[in-house]
Simulated assay, not measured.
Amino acid sequence: MTYSDYKFFLENDNNPFILFNAEKRIAYLNTAAEFLLGRANKNDIYDLCIANAPKEYGSKMTYVDLRYDDLSFYGITVGYQDDTYIGIRFYQRVKKMQPTAKELNKYIKTDINTLLETSISLVTMQESYEIKLMTDMDIPEFRISQNDFFKIMRKCFHSFEPGDRLQLTLKIRVGESIHVKNRRYKLVKLEMSTQKKRIVEDDREIESLCESNFIDYLADDTKIRLLIPML
């Protein structure tokens, strides 16, 4: 790994990072920031950045309660080393979930790759999609509700137009975890994206189904991201 590979860590960080240039334009943003900007105004973020910037070159962390739709943050760091660029990083609030024993009973130890491939097969029997699938085959088995996962995937697929070219990516989320019943679990990220606009009418229903399964649902006009706890 070389020094230039630092962007890999920024890109796979669940905390949004945005770099502005002197013209107030975005010079760089990571994937998490793309989802943030689907809920927040770019100019408002820039104003927040300037308002919390250190008076001299360097960086400053500020604890502040921020919420943009379903995204919640407890603080930001703003920094700059010259007058060319200024960056802001948001610190996402960790969600603590307390499922009941009855809720946990529906979770079965499962190979998520097999479950995803089955979901794709079931959906493509009815609709035509051009799918490019990239997965991490080394993801270990973990507990998940198979029936609810199939429901979620069916509704997610139906939010894309038949015939769309879809990119599906499944991998373990680097450096991110979630608390469930005072235990920390790693997260798997499943991302679905296309170049065309999605059908968003059922997003609230999908989000509700995800919440009942302790899955974070993030979506914008062209992309869906599911953060699934490895219970």
Rank of each mutant, 00 (worst) to 15 (best):
A51I: 00
H158V: 00
I144S: 03
D148S: 07
D5V: 01
V94S: 14
F73D: 07
Y63P: 02
D5Q: 10
T110G: 02
F9V: 04
T114A: 08
Y28C: 01
D220L: 01
L115I: 06
D216A: 05
K109F: 01
V200Q: 15
R93I: 14
M230L: 05
S193N: 11
K24R: 13
G75L: 01
N30P: 07
G75D: 04
F73H: 04
N14V: 08
Q167L: 14
L104W: 11
D82E: 12
L190I: 03
T62I: 14
F149P: 01
V180A: 08
Q92W: 01
I131Q: 13
D69W: 09
M137C: 06
I152W: 00
L37Y: 11
K196M: 10
L19K: 15
M125K: 13
D5F: 04
L231C: 07
T194N: 14
G175C: 07
K171N: 12
R89N: 05
L104H: 12
T135H: 06
L71I: 02
Y28V: 03
D221Y: 10
D69R: 10
R93L: 14
K60A: 14
S128W: 04
K151V: 00
H158P: 00
V174W: 13
L115W: 05
V174L: 10
A40C: 06
S193M: 10
L66N: 11
L170W: 10
D82R: 10
V123G: 05
R89F: 00
P16L: 03
Y107E: 06
D5Y: 04
K95N: 13
R204Q: 10
G163Q: 11
C156S: 09
F214A: 02
Y85A: 06
S119W: 08
D111E: 03
A27R: 05
R154M: 01
D221F: 09
Y107D: 03
A219C: 13
Y80W: 03
Q92E: 11
R173V: 13
R225F: 00
T31M: 10
H179I: 07
K106L: 00
K171V: 07
K95Y: 12
N105K: 15
G79H: 00
L115Y: 09
K102Q: 15
D69A: 13
P162E: 05
L10F: 07
T222P: 05
K106Q: 02
T124S: 14
D136E: 12
L10G: 02
G58T: 15
L209C: 10
A40M: 11
D216R: 02
Y85T: 08
P16W: 01
D164L: 03
K132T: 14
M125Y: 12
A53S: 12
R39D: 09
P99V: 08
K95F: 10
L133E: 10
L29P: 00
Y3D: 03
Q92M: 09
Q146M: 09
E161D: 04
D65M: 04
Y85W: 07
N14P: 02
T100S: 15
N43A: 11
S208L: 13
E191V: 09
V200A: 13
Y85F: 14
M97Y: 14
E127C: 06
